[in-house]
Simulated assay, not measured.
Amino acid sequence: MDTEKTIDGIQKHLKNLIEKVVPAYNERGMQFGNERYGSWRQQVTKFLDQHLPGESQRFKNKRTLLGVHQGRWESAFESFWRQDGEKVRSYLESLIIDLEDGTYEQPQIIESGETKTTDELSSTNSPLENVVNVCNSFHKVVKQLRSRYSNRETLNVNDEYDVQDLLHGLLHLHFEDIRAEEWVPSNAAKCTRVDFLLKNEGIIIEVKKTRQGLAAKEVGSQLIEDIHRYKTHPDCKTLVCFVYDPEERIVNPRGLEADLSKDSEIEVHVLIRP
């Protein structure tokens, strides 16, 4: 995917797999184990192997991604394909969206014959890189949670508390000591709560979710106050401000990130996603 032309070609091929192949097979019944479904699966996996190898390998790494089906362990790749065509179609559509938005990042490719645990993969990144990767993948996780087998109940991310709950769980993939809602005194003799403190890493994570009445201006004002407040926190070397903006209420997210990610006393990173 070195050129825009290559990305455009991948998008077109994915759309062809979705728009032409899937509906035709679904009309005749395309479920796991069906011969037609098996044929279509081969087409998709061959395409991913050739053009998005990291994405393909994401589902084949049995040591880092495991699922349970009918009481036995199986690779997440098998678990993923043990769904109807519509579920897989949703996954392919999310790939297209990420490619079009320029937010798609290929998963790390593991050399042939080499297996690594999640901890080993995480250790190749700095703590800050792991936090940033979790924030960058957050919206993709939310979208995946919406598509559950047999319409099972899921976590709907409707407000800031939902964002905090899901982010807390994702952070446990990389960190052991996560201190939620720790109190810190402010200059006005009031106490406010830190959303997450990674004490060993010196990282504080502040979480926001946009909504009606909380867009760019309001988010900017709140984060300016937060940045000023956390300068006094003894464990804060780096502040990560994660703003979840699924409705894209912030018109110029990169501009707001650049304006706020400037502070001489502590390292500040503002991440507005998607």
Score class of each variant (00 low, 15 high):
residue 184 V to Q: 03
residue 257 E to T: 09
residue 125 N to I: 05
residue 34 N to H: 12
residue 107 P to T: 06
residue 162 D to L: 05
residue 28 R to T: 06
residue 147 S to I: 08
residue 161 Y to K: 11
residue 203 I to E: 04
residue 152 R to G: 15
residue 8 D to H: 09
residue 153 E to F: 13
residue 69 H to F: 11
residue 200 N to F: 02
residue 153 E to Q: 10
residue 172 H to T: 14
residue 39 S to M: 08
residue 186 S to A: 07
residue 108 Q to M: 12
residue 146 R to M: 03
residue 79 S to T: 06
residue 50 Q to K: 14
residue 246 P to I: 00
residue 39 S to K: 15
residue 187 N to I: 10
residue 146 R to V: 00
residue 74 E to Y: 03
residue 67 G to W: 01
residue 82 R to S: 15
residue 234 P to L: 03
residue 238 T to N: 09
residue 235 D to L: 13
residue 58 R to Y: 14
residue 262 K to Q: 14
residue 259 D to R: 13
residue 105 E to F: 08
residue 140 K to V: 02
residue 264 S to Q: 11
residue 166 L to Y: 07
residue 107 P to W: 10
residue 24 A to I: 11
residue 99 L to N: 01
residue 209 K to F: 01
residue 11 Q to P: 04
residue 151 N to T: 11
residue 128 L to Q: 10
residue 209 K to A: 08
residue 61 N to I: 05
residue 49 D to L: 01
residue 31 Q to S: 08
residue 161 Y to F: 15
residue 270 V to T: 14
residue 115 T to L: 14
residue 56 S to L: 06
residue 81 W to H: 07
residue 175 F to I: 09
residue 45 T to D: 08
residue 137 S to Y: 15
residue 179 R to E: 07
residue 12 K to W: 00
residue 209 K to S: 13
residue 135 C to K: 12
residue 198 L to M: 05
residue 161 Y to I: 12
residue 163 V to L: 06
residue 234 P to F: 05
residue 143 K to R: 11
residue 123 S to T: 12
residue 244 Y to H: 01
residue 70 Q to S: 10
residue 274 P to K: 00
residue 183 W to E: 04
residue 193 R to N: 04
residue 167 L to W: 06
residue 249 R to A: 08
residue 245 D to F: 01
residue 166 L to I: 10
residue 165 D to H: 06
residue 120 E to F: 04
residue 199 K to S: 08
residue 136 N to A: 12
residue 47 F to G: 02
residue 236 C to V: 02
residue 33 G to I: 06
residue 25 Y to Q: 12
residue 210 T to Q: 03
residue 82 R to E: 15
residue 76 A to M: 11
residue 144 Q to T: 10
residue 74 E to D: 04
residue 211 R to S: 08
residue 13 H to L: 03
residue 140 K to E: 14
residue 88 V to T: 12
residue 185 P to I: 05
residue 48 L to N: 04
residue 224 I to W: 07
residue 170 L to R: 10
residue 117 T to K: 06
residue 33 G to M: 04
residue 39 S to N: 08
residue 209 K to R: 13
residue 72 R to N: 13
residue 197 L to A: 12
residue 228 H to V: 13
residue 43 Q to S: 10
residue 10 I to D: 02
residue 199 K to D: 05
residue 191 C to Q: 13
residue 152 R to Y: 07
residue 272 I to V: 01
residue 64 T to I: 04
residue 267 E to D: 11
residue 148 R to G: 12
residue 16 N to T: 00
residue 50 Q to F: 06
residue 205 I to P: 02
residue 26 N to A: 12
residue 81 W to D: 02
residue 215 A to H: 10
residue 69 H to T: 01
residue 34 N to R: 09
residue 251 V to G: 00
residue 131 V to L: 05
residue 207 V to N: 00
residue 178 I to M: 06
residue 81 W to P: 04
residue 70 Q to N: 14
residue 79 S to I: 05
residue 196 F to Y: 11
residue 230 Y to F: 04
residue 100 E to Y: 05
residue 227 I to W: 00
residue 164 Q to D: 03
residue 245 D to T: 10
residue 41 R to D: 00
residue 253 P to H: 00
residue 224 I to T: 12
residue 228 H to M: 10
residue 12 K to S: 09
residue 261 S to R: 04
